[in-house]
């Protein structure tokens, strides 16, 4: 375990060095991160300033909480999950995954931690700012237990999202080009900025059970607002564990399918 912490530290260091390598890239990347984090709240303003409080069961402030979680989880996806895993597709195509598989360490860990976009920390700061503003407007502070629960649910959300990404990347072992799949999921993920009650019927089922966006943004927001039931917590944790186990199994199975690129 200690060894993997050391490896994570070294991989983070390499990402930091990489980010600092090109001065203009570094500055532009930083500015873009702040810009995207700020634009994530715009759709909500559009809906609520037209005078139609159109999300049943959610006031503007409460819906803003979901946006905060969406920004946070999206930041984790773009900063920590996607950079490393997206490189796997290239590794498979060029055959350089060989070098990862020849290392005496877990291949899934090595590829997952191979690259970070450190500027996406801006998303975390934006999300925390939103939480602060929301509670300020609500005129109260979150309960300690609710903070604890929402932190737990944040890890549940990250684990679920990471597992889904592993499942998508694993498809690259079979079909090599998965750009469309990646694009599709990124588009679907965008729906996570809305509370789940916005969606009806099939979409609601889809975003709760198949692509569990509810678990990633709505449930943590409910937890922080202090209105999440214990059954929701149990379902979230169980779902994350199921996704994690399934994705690990699929990843290992897919590795056996790896044929490497010829020299």
């Amino acid at each position: 375990m200690g060894r993997y912490v050391t490896l994570l530290r070294m991989q983070l260091r390499a990402s930091a060095l990489l980010a600092a390598q090109y001065r203009w890239d570094f500055l532009i990347d930083g500015a873009l991160s702040l810009f995207w984090a700020a634009t994530a709240v715009i759709p909500l303003f559009v809906v609520y300033t037209e005078g139609r409080a159109s999300i049943p069961g959610w006031s503007f402030d409460e819906a803003m909480m979901v946006v905060g979680w969406f920004i946070l989880v999206q930041g984790v996806l773009e900063g920590a999950i996607n950079p490393g895993l997206a490189a796997v597709v290239d590794h498979i195509r060029k055959g350089t995954l060989d070098f990862v598989l020849l290392k005496p360490a877990d291949a899934q860990f090595l590829v997952s931690t191979s690259r970070f976009q450190l500027w996406r920390v801006a998303s975390l700061l934006t999300a925390l700012t939103i939480f602060g503003v929301v509670f300020n407007r609500l005129g109260r502070a979150p309960a300690l237990l609710d903070i604890g629960l929402s932190v737990l649910l944040m890890w549940v959300a990250v684990l679920t999202l990471y597992s889904m990404w592993i499942l998508i990347i694993s498809a690259a072992f079979y079909v090599v080009k998965i750009d469309n799949l990646n694009y599709l999921f990124t588009s679907i993920f965008d729906a996570g900025r809305w509370p789940i009650s916005v969606f009806k019927g099939g979409l609601r089922l889809l975003f709760t059970f198949v692509v569990p966006l509810a678990l990633m943004t709505t449930f943590p927001a409910e937890a922080l607002l202090g209105r999440m039931g214990s059954s929701t917590l149990a379902i979230s944790v169980s779902a994350a564990l199921v996704f994690a186990t399934a994705s690990r199994w699929v990843w290992r199975k897919s590795l056996r399918h790896y044929t490497s690129a010829s020299s």
Binding site: R3, M10, L17, Q21, T96
Partner: peptide, 27 residues
């Protein structure tokens, strides 16, 4: 395994960084 047509060195960083990373991986 060394392959003349593929490389494991981190492209944008000095080779010494790859050596250090491998040191940690191979303990």
């Amino acid at each position: 395994l060394v392959m003349g047509q593929k490389q494991q060195l981190l492209w944008d960083l000095p080779p010494s960084e790859t050596f250090e990373l491998n040191r940690a991986i191979y303990e």
